[in-house]
């Protein structure tokens, strides 16, 4: 049950972030004529979201791993402190 709650929390978080930040990439899209070169094409093609998704997967994966370790230690604590 706790797992279920966690999964829902994560998906809500991801959704919220998508809603909040998909619009903001429009700022970065105005290509400057003399300004230093930036990854504007990557943004226009939308491939930047592939990178974002990959990084989010890694960060979320690390966090899930840490959480699972935390839970295992908590279970051990319960057992040993009985």
């Amino acid at each position: 049950m706790k797992n279920n709650l966690l999964a829902r929390f994560f998906s809500a978080l991801c959704l919220l972030q998508l809603l909040l930040f998909t619009g903001t990439s429009a700022f970065a899209q105005a290509p400057g004529t003399e300004a230093p070169e930036m990854a504007d094409v990557l943004r226009q093609s939308g491939k930047i979201y592939v990178v974002v998704a990959a990084v989010v997967i890694i960060v979320a994966g690390l966090l899930v791993y840490l959480i699972s370790l935390d839970r295992k230690v908590a279970r051990l604590e319960q057992e040993i402190n009985k």
């Binding site: 991801c14 972030q17 998508l18 930040f21 998909t22 903001t24 700022f27 070169e37 960060v59 966090l63």
Partner: peptide, 21 residues
């Protein structure tokens, strides 16, 4: 951490030579 992973790529940054993106 999840916020910085998303916003870190999507929010605008100053356009500077050499460092670029």
């Amino acid at each position: 951490l999840l916020y910085s992973a998303v916003a870190g790529f999507l929010l605008p940054v100053p356009r500077l030579a050499i460092v670029n993106e």
